[in-house]
Design a protein around this nucleic acid. Structure first.
Lengths: 213, 213
DNA sequence: ATTGTTTGACTGAATGTTCAGTCTAGAAAC
DNA sequence: GTTTCTAGACTGAACATTCAGTCAAACAAT
């Protein structure tokens, strides 16, 4: 499905992305099940009919928006991680990704999205697929990071698989707290507790540096 | 068929509870936002109008159902915990409560409910109140359990508050995994990993016993 | 006892709204 | 002049809630 070349080429893709972004805004604001096509259209400066034109159904729009958000979040994180030299530093970035807020997005946005992602995954196969893929990728990232750190002699020889499972569970759990608790303190505390856990388990020194980004 | 025989006043309460239970069934099956009054009425053997008669609005019904479920779950757990002699054993029960399935309910039911509880809490003040109260109570339970264990000399002198925060986050995180992962293996693994973490942190010996209930 | 009265549980049939998705047709790009 | 894009008006179904009562039990007065 290649688009036409020339000036208008990016136009359609641009519109699509605009709508996905609009959909994400609305999902965060109203929740996945209460996101109406009209809302998305309005926010994207288009008509409801146009939204349906681009995404056959409402569900396709929302599912794709979820995938879009997760992919973007993951890709941005990976890029940052790749720029870090030590395994310990990389792990810290992994933890920061879930515990510390990004600059551009409003603090609790991505976590609110997660809550919806989970709740929807339980019953919606399309969304569930997004979650599974994301979860697996995420755990794999942690695991290989740990393995690399062990080879480099930075980390103690714990079972990397077990560690990945437990760390990702811990991060998910904190994500709930952060998403639902209004207190800003929670993020810093979650970050510190998690880093203490990780450094203790993997046996590297960690002196609590950053508190924000 | 007979209405209010003897303590006719109990009839109404009975009916109410019947409806709450029906609501929970439907919520688990269809998700909170897609739970229709008709569904609940049907399952409770009543008319939609009667459901509204008991609970002024749909939202009140669903919120109350959530509270009902959480209270029941917590109360049953507390009772079991109270019957255990050692702090280590009690802690094991706490972990089992979230990681190992109950007998009567279908495995993932209560966790599915949690996912909905979280997602709804983000936007619905009534549900949010249910969650807050539940969360606080839960963390307090862990904390005082740890303190008691420390006084009894069973546990190492870690910060009980920090431990409660991190353990409840870990359990929440595993709850997500268990609720969404279909594999039955997950529960046993989550239980074991969590118990290893707890016994390591609190410095008590744990020999992985139970795998089910 | 019989009759009328009250009350609480309950229902079927509206009511009105909200939406996803469709249809038709115009504008723009090629 | 055909394809791609866009919007306004519409349709049809789904649903929460309301309404106007029914029905039977308890109760009170005769």
């Amino acid at each position: 499905m290649k688009e036409q070349t020339g000036g208008g080429e990016g136009m359609a893709d641009q519109r699509r992305e605009q709508m996905l972004q609009a959909a994400l805004d609305v999902i965060v604001e109203r929740g996945y099940p209460d996101t109406r096509i009209t809302d998305v259209a309005e926010r994207a400066g288009a008509s409801p009919a146009l939204v349906i034109y681009y995404f056959k159904t409402r569900d396709q729009l929302l599912t794709e928006a979820m995938r879009y958000a997760e992919d973007a979040w993951y890709a941005a994180g990976l890029r940052r991680i790749a720029a870090i030299g030590t395994a310990a530093g990389q792990l810290e970035e992994v933890v920061a990704m879930t515990c510390l807020p990004e600059e551009d997005t409003s603090p609790s946005d991505s976590w609110l999205l997660w809550l919806d992602l989970w709740a929807q995954s339980a019953r919606n196969p399309g969304v569930s697929a997004v979650w599974s893929k994301f979860e697996e990728r995420w755990r794999e990232t942690i695991k290989s990071l740990v393995l690399a750190g062990q080879e480099a002699g930075e980390f103690a020889p714990v079972d990397a698989g077990d560690f990945a499972v437990i760390l990702s569970a811990l991060l998910d759990g904190f994500a709930v707290q952060i998403a639902l608790e209004e207190s800003e303190v929670a993020t810093a505390r979650a970050f510190e507790l998690t880093m203490r856990f990780a450094s203790d388990r993997l046996g590297f020194a960690w002196n609590g540096r950053r508190t924000g980004r």
